[in-house]
Design a protein around this nucleic acid. Sequence first.
RNA 1: GGGCGCAUAGCUCAGUUGGUUAGAGCGCGUCGCUGAUAACGACGAGGUCCCAAGUUCGAAUCUUGGUGCGCCCA
Length: 1173
Amino acid sequence: MFQPAPGNVSFPKQEEETLEFWRERRVYEKTLQRRAGQPKFVFNEGPPTANGLPHPGHCLTRAIKDVFPRYRTMRGYFCERQAGWDTHGLPVEVEVCKELGIHAKEEIEAYGIEPFIHKCQASVWRYMKEWERLTERIGFWIDLGSAYVTYHQSYIESVWWSLKQLFDRGLLYKGHKIVWWWAQGGTALSAGEVGQGYREVADPSVYVRFPLVGEENASLLVWTTTPWTLPSNQFAAVHADMEYARVSDEQTGQRLILAAALVETLAKKLKRELTVEETFPGSALLGKRYIPPFNYYYQTLGKKTGALKEGGVEHLAWRVVAAEFVTLESGTGVVHQAPAFGEDDFNVLQGERARFQADAGPELICAVGPDGRFTAEAGEWQGRWVKDADKEITRNLRDRGLLVHQEQYIHNYPFCWRADQDPLIQYPRESWFIRTTAFRDRMLENNRRINWLPEHIRDGRFGNFLESNVDWALSRERYWGTPLPIWVCEKTGMMEAVANYDDLLKKPGAAGAEVWEQAKQANPELVEDLKVHKPYIDAVTYDSPFAHGARMRRVPEVIDCWYDSGAMPFAQLGYPHCEKEKFEQQFPADFISEAIDQTRGWFYSQLAISTMLFGDEQHVTDDTPLHEFPHPFRNCIVLGLMLAEVGVCDKCEQRYNDPSVAKCEKCGGNVSRRTEKMSKKLRNYREPQEIFDRYGADALRWYFFANQTPWSSIIYSERAIKEKIPEFLLRLWNVFSFFVSYSNTSGFDPADLLAGEAGQLKPETLRTAAGYRPFEERNELDRWVLSELNRTAAAVVERMDAYDNFVACARLNEFVDALSNWYVRRSRDRFWENWRREGESKTFTNLDLASIPKLDAASREKLDGYWTLYECLTTVSKLIAPFTPFLAESLWRNLTGVFGPRAEESVHLCDYPTGDASAVDAQLSDRMRLVREIASLGLSVRADKKLKVRQPLSKAEVILSDTLHQAWLESHDALLRDELNVKQIEYTQETEKYVNYQVVPNFRLLGPQLGKLMPKVQGALKKINPGELLASLNATGEAKLTIDGQEVTLSSESIEVRLQAKEGWAAAQGHGGVVVLSTELTPDLLREGYARDLVRFIQERRKEMNCQYDDRIAVVVGVDAPELGQAFKENEAYIRNETLAVEFAVSPLKNAQAADQQLAGQPLTLDVQVAGA
RNA sequence: GGGCGCAUAGCUCAGUUGGUUAGAGCGCGUCGCUGAUAACGACGAGGUCCCAAGUUCGAAUCUUGGUGCGCCCA
């Protein structure tokens, strides 16, 4: 007996039980053991940070990350899954600062770096429990116990090893980086933080003259909104291809040079005429020298030149250069360049430097200190806060006649999000860089070999990003991060990199480790990993090999935490300090997946690090292995963003987090749905846990997998998740529930019929069961559904191998639909078989095995039906296992539980079905499709003519577009007769009576042949007599047309015949043909219809009475209308059989008032009693 | 400002290499079924495939330009 499977199942509850089962039986571990030694499928987990709560977006990534490893495991691969946590970085520090109520770096240092670090380490695990719960609940099978953690010593030492490789190869260097700088706090802000602090402000907008050297009274006219950067001016930039003009200003007698297109705009501002004297391209200005507005630097450097690489010399600064970013949007088309205070400007400087020989180019000029105040180099402005100096600088320029115009400029400018009165400034900081630009081409090549899904990422967003690669700014002036493992000689400034802690302590004269030892002694709870962190690691120094008596001290910086995560392919194992061999076996990864926001994050950091370390034989050291592209991953699914769905009132903008609200509670206006970014602040989404509790993890997973391609942005819509349940999960459950209840009542128990090991219930095992007949002996419907099953399995495997979960799910959905809506629907009669035979309660229970071959035909067919459905359901549970692992497990455990230990305990231990090609019957598929189409057309006619299906009709006539399958259909029309409730189906020859023919060319075939002739052939076919054409085709296999004197030969493949039903018939047309129903209702047919109506009344009554399936009843029908009485009498056998009525009587209606039913407009009473009760 | 992507039914989304009745689910309407039954099914209505131009015998699909939206970067 199968466990009962009621229709009103609670999936969430069932899932919790399944989780318990998996835990208890250690099923995940068993799936790994089962595949030990098999080929590997390598999945790498991109580490999330556990210091924030998981949200719905994480559910998507976790679901996608789960489905492919599960699938591959079932396909026979050994797929270990190591979890990981990203633990370093500014977000952690910010959280701790919040907790401590402090902001600035000074405050952190005042609090003490040591306790601060301890707090960071603890804070990292704040939401660990929530993450682990989510991971388990959504069914993401991954080894949490062996998770890699980026702050662990072994991880950090792997990172150190890689950095030492880069350092030793000369790929790490110190340079400047322009950052958004909070001067008051003394810290740089990340892009995300800067983005939060934009505000609209009014800044001075000044137009300043830069007099040209050696040109009479002519000046460049430059525009800036940051006058305080003028003392640090180094260049003026123009666009080489834009047109410039020299204009004369009559009032001042000055001649100004600016973009020609902006002359008029400027004239309006100045409210006076400017006369254009000459125009020329920007390229004509290149190289011209000018006198900057302040001469602090100019007085010493103004005349200096340097040697160029290409030969010759050039002035270091204060000349015109070309830049692409110069536009006509605002200003004058001549842009003041202060490389210290803008990234674009800085890049210009870098470009200039690259033209000079080593160390001969211009240095960065910066007249501002890190505190945001002018330095001594700025003369009179020294000590002034730069933003305060704007006004005075402007006045100074006016006094000296350099200011041409001044106004207010309103724009967005960033302020510190922690101190909103403090404007940020762009400021150069010393930083360590990785020379990634040297690997640009190799990264591009590597990228080309990666299978990106969607494809456009490769040459689009990611490829473009790689094309414009700049050196990786690696270092951070922060506290909680992987320390940069570089030690500097205090005397010579010479440096070396260290690959691990032991090496460090073995250095000659190493000292300082005791700082850690003492801390550990004072507080034994400190985790050992902290010893490789600040401040302990900073205490470790050693004797300089470069200068006698000098010490080596570590640089103060930590590194970008993206480097941490990018090192994950080897650092998760602690490579190369350990697990060397294992790393070799699992590199590169077969599969990774994250959302699109990781393009410049984890996708890039992995690719860059891997390309530099493992890809370039010229630089590689002896013990570093080389790898063929692609690495470090072969396939990557880039997920779309997840959006929240909310309701917003059209009138008053009131927000509703439940998008199903239709009327505004405040103003009564219409609430319309809107999608927007998910936001923790707005809480505009439902917590994942609530979704699990209401609908279950499978519902959410199926929604993610089956509703859209993974890369389209996904709307996290509760309604949509809910709606997916009946379409697939519940439909499948209903089929299963149907199977279980009938099997139990009929006594079908596969465990009784199948001896020995049942294992995975594979086809070869099923074939050994008693009563399991070979396909070819079963009926058409069984063969059809098994063919569809195997076709589906093959298609799903094909799609999943290509990482296409969406189409795979569509295939599964189609099959479950076919199983439910055609196979079960059309097979119900068979499953009911035994109840229909009055007085017979024969079931398969305790069936003598030897007597099975002697079963009568009906019983055999019934047994076939059970075996077929059983095979479909067990196979489907395997097929859906990677997608909806919970439902799959519930189905499997119930379907195979009857075998006890003879069957596999979990569906996830099974092999994935790949489809048996020999069981696929394409012709049968086509035929069944045709049958379903004809049935559909027939039902369409009935609906159109208001002829309910219960009313039998005498005949349906079918005219097929293509008579290929006609003979088969004729010999298999019982199914259609039953479905359409007609007495006879005729494949009529009198086609002209019902239909018009239309001959349409096969464009795909003829198009390439005929080219321009195509429309004319199309026109000719419209006019032609189709009968003659078809006759010719039938007789000779071809037909000829003459178009424009040219003969065109048509074969039967080159045309398609379409049928159109003529007016006046109850007919419907489709691709396959036309169905015409005979609508004449004879008294016989009507009476039969009445009998069916009565059966329905009685069945309804049985249901109301809560009859058992096999209860026998006694029925008395009270009716006066003679035609009804006659109808019931004539069809008594049918009525008794359908309703299990052992007694059936028709009596005159006693009291018309008491009639509880109406049939054909006549009153009727119904008295139903359980027989013998 | 630059890059990338998206735009198809009321909603959420599919749509292979260009091929002539553009699909699915939900919703809606009509009806059916009633021993899968707090289910289920059928049928139907609903589309200028964002706009415009081009390439082509033929464009939802390719090209260009525009419009709107989103993301990333500046």
